[in-house]
Simulated assay, not measured.
Amino acid sequence: MKAPTLLLLLGTLPLAAQQRPAINGISHIAIYAHDMAAAQRYYEHDMGLKKASDPENSAGTRYYVNATQFVEVLPLPAQAGISRLDHLAYKTVDAAGLRSYLAAKRVEVPATVQTLNDGSKTFSVKDPEGNTVEFVQPGKADLSGAQPIGTRIIHVGMVVHDRAKEDTFYREILNFRPYWYGGGTDGRTSWVSQQTPEANEWVEYMLPREGQELTQKQAGVMNHYSIGVVNMEQAVSTLAAQDRLSTEHSPMQIGRDGKWQFNSYDDEGTRTELMEFTPVMTPCCSPITAPHPKP
């Protein structure tokens, strides 16, 4: 008689008590471009990503880093502002279950999960600052012929104005965990890295100064994505030798987090940051508090 009683009790648990399905890393960044041909040259030729059709938006194009991570490029809408970011997306093992979990946490969710023609399942919500956040249960992708400069997106970044407000969603509801924080100068925090709960990839809060009005260039620096590389010198040398540095870029350097990095920009100013997986120097500002991603 105990088993039916247990099932009855489980059936009466409040929705808020249900378990969150795993969020196992970054799916993609979706950005805008006014010149889709220039975007193709940059993401396919320069970054070596695999071009494919976009099952979510027929006007867009996907550029795959690996079978489950990609850059989605969409046509620039009329009356677009300075930002070229459409949304950031994270992977989950159960899109329908995560939608139900978020609904139980009083996050506004769509009525259903969408199934795309690549077999992926997806839905989107808004974070506390109004940014679109998509969750993707991955489908399948053909990566034949790709020569990506790195094979893993290790982080994405977005403009955040209120760290505490965003933490109510990313930390308290989604259970992202602290990784590192710092700034360009001592005494001011400009970057806050929060790792996804079941993987060592992270979202980076990019914090402008209070009241700062961003230019398109500054927004492109902040709204960015990062590909992990094992050896920065080798990666940059490969890009140079193969004539894959056709757009604005900066010399490789050691960042304030102690890691080698290299910044390159598409024609709209969106930044691709190559980054080594582990520091070569002690990071400034705060300790690393979670494991590093691996190649």
Rank of each mutant, 00 (worst) to 15 (best):
27 S>A: 14
27 S>R: 10
27 S>H: 09
28 H>A: 12
29 I>T: 15
30 A>F: 03
31 I>D: 11
31 I>F: 10
33 A>L: 09
34 H>E: 10
40 Q>D: 15
41 R>L: 13
42 Y>M: 09
43 Y>H: 08
43 Y>V: 08
44 E>Q: 14
45 H>I: 15
48 G>Y: 01
48 G>C: 08
48 G>Q: 04
49 L>N: 05
50 K>Y: 09
51 K>T: 12
51 K>C: 05
54 D>P: 00
55 P>M: 05
57 N>L: 04
57 N>R: 09
59 A>C: 00
59 A>S: 10
61 T>W: 03
62 R>A: 01
63 Y>V: 05
64 Y>D: 00
64 Y>T: 01
65 V>T: 14
66 N>C: 11
66 N>H: 02
67 A>M: 00
68 T>K: 15
68 T>L: 00
71 V>C: 04
74 L>D: 08
75 P>K: 01
77 P>W: 07
79 Q>I: 02
81 G>V: 13
81 G>A: 11
84 R>M: 12
85 L>A: 05
87 H>E: 07
89 A>Q: 02
93 V>N: 15
95 A>L: 09
95 A>C: 07
96 A>Y: 08
96 A>R: 11
98 L>G: 08
98 L>Y: 04
100 S>C: 12
101 Y>A: 08
102 L>W: 06
104 A>E: 07
105 K>L: 09
105 K>N: 14
107 V>C: 06
108 E>A: 13
109 V>A: 05
110 P>D: 02
114 Q>D: 12
115 T>R: 14
115 T>D: 01
116 L>V: 00
119 G>A: 01
121 K>H: 14
123 F>G: 10
125 V>F: 06
125 V>I: 13
128 P>C: 12
129 E>D: 13
130 G>M: 04
130 G>P: 12
132 T>S: 12
135 F>D: 01
